[in-house]
Amino acid sequence: MTSVDRATWGPAAGFVGEDLGVAVAGLGLFATTYYIGYVVSNLFGGFLADWLGGRLIVGLSILLSGSFMLAFGESTSKDMGLVFQACVGLFAGAEFGGGVRLIANWFRPEKRGTAMGIFMTATSLGLVIANAVVPSLIQQSSWRTSYHLFGFISVGLGVLCLIFLRGGKRQAEPQEKTRPQIMPLLRNRNLLMLGLAGFGALWGTYGFVTWSNLLMTKGIGISPVQAGVVVVIFGSAAIFSKPLIGFVSDAIKMTRRNLTIIILLAFSATLVAFSMASNSVQFLWIAPLLGIAAYIYSPIMLAMIPTLAGEKLAGSAAGGINAFWQLGSTIVPTVIGMIFGATSSFQLAFLALAAGPLLAVIPMLAIRPANTTSGKNVPVAATEPAR
């Protein structure tokens, strides 16, 4: 539901702008304010999950973000909308670190690829649900209805998580509430390189999620419903591919680092291909390939984090790294909005998106095995055979 809440903006953006009097170039600021809040809560959410437990953080995260979805649906001005968007992101981001902490508790390292693949299916499923439901709700009612609907569902789910969600069997939820020590994470070179790589990858993914609907309608001239179908296919292709790539990464001998590099190159190439399309039929052909490439790097990269950081700091590491990853999501909406506003070029906007995953390959190449005190290399999730 945090992913549904985030993805609702894409198909609703143009209608929100018309209602609140915001120009097309200024709509990217709404997405940017969301991601600013999201980055901040990622920084603290994982830390709090390691300290107070994943169940509490996950439950409160979705409950409070849903509450501000309801508030955004009542916005009557640009400034009010920006504040509520920032608050939705501020609480939604804490869920990520809490979820990773719980998964690290439940699964051994060699099984985490599959587990993270299932967990990360949420981002794609949320995109599909939002683009399948929101355009129809807007046609039948208004953009406010979609924010009210998803807000109520999110609040209810938050309550259910607080009641029913439990810790883990491999490592119990923290009982003494000892504050985690995060300095070792800041000195971990491999984690820093993984953060840089994720920044570039998410630049492409969430730039597409945020702007694809509007760019296809304004830049190419296809209808909002046709654009929604393209994005639904984009997200649907990733729903089943994420668990599959997680299983593959656990089973094959290729290192997770090398597998990620291949995916990032494919992602950049499909964004370039999408930039050259000029009608809905071409978009529909490219969308499933782009959807697979735009998402399947995430469970592999995520599965690398607990082993690189250690299970006791899994939440803090995941939250901190995802916060840095999301800086790409924070910056890209405004940048792409400025590019399209200045040039009105659909192709140039998507070429700018393609640069993100292409450059992300460089820090991935810099990830190396960690060294033990004896000086021998020991395999880590980033470079060991995936199984």
Rank of each mutant, 00 (worst) to 15 (best):
T32L: 12
Y34T: 07
Y34V: 15
Y34D: 13
Y34P: 15
Y35W: 15
Y35S: 05
Y35D: 11
G37W: 03
G37Y: 08
G37R: 02
Y38R: 08
V40L: 11
V40R: 10
V40Y: 07
L43S: 04
L43Y: 10
F44Q: 03
F44M: 12
F44K: 01
G45K: 09
G45H: 07
G45S: 04
G45Y: 07
G46V: 12
L48H: 01
L48A: 10
L48F: 04
A49T: 09
A49S: 13
A49Q: 07
D50S: 12
D50P: 15
D50N: 04
W51M: 09
W51Y: 12
L52F: 12
L52V: 04
L52M: 11
G54R: 10
G54E: 04
R55E: 03
R55K: 13
R55W: 03
L56S: 12
I57M: 15
I57W: 10
V58S: 06
V58A: 08
V58T: 13
V58Q: 08
V58W: 00
G59M: 05
L60S: 06
S61R: 06
S61K: 06
I62H: 06
I62A: 06
L63E: 00
S65E: 15
S67L: 13
S67C: 12
S67I: 11
F68T: 12
M69I: 02
M69Q: 14
M69L: 14
A71H: 02
S75C: 11
S75A: 13
S75H: 08
S77M: 02
D79Y: 14
L82I: 14
V83H: 02
F84M: 12
C87F: 11
C87Q: 06
C87D: 00
V88H: 01
G89M: 07
L90N: 05
F91L: 03
A92F: 08
G93A: 10
E95T: 13
E95V: 07
E95W: 10
E95D: 13
E95Y: 14
F96K: 08
F96A: 04
G97I: 01
V100H: 09
V100Y: 11
V100A: 13
V100R: 03
R101H: 12
L102W: 01
A104T: 06
N105W: 08
N105H: 11
N105L: 02
W106K: 12
F107T: 00
F107V: 03
R108S: 12
R108A: 15
E110P: 01
E110K: 11
K111P: 02
K111Y: 14
R112P: 09
R112T: 02
R112A: 10
R112S: 09
G113Y: 01
G113R: 00
G113F: 03
G113K: 01
T114R: 13
A115N: 04
A115P: 04
A115I: 09
M116Q: 13
G117D: 03
G117Y: 05
F119P: 00
F119V: 02
M120S: 14
M120I: 01
M120G: 11
M120W: 06
T121V: 00
T121G: 04
A122L: 07
A122R: 02
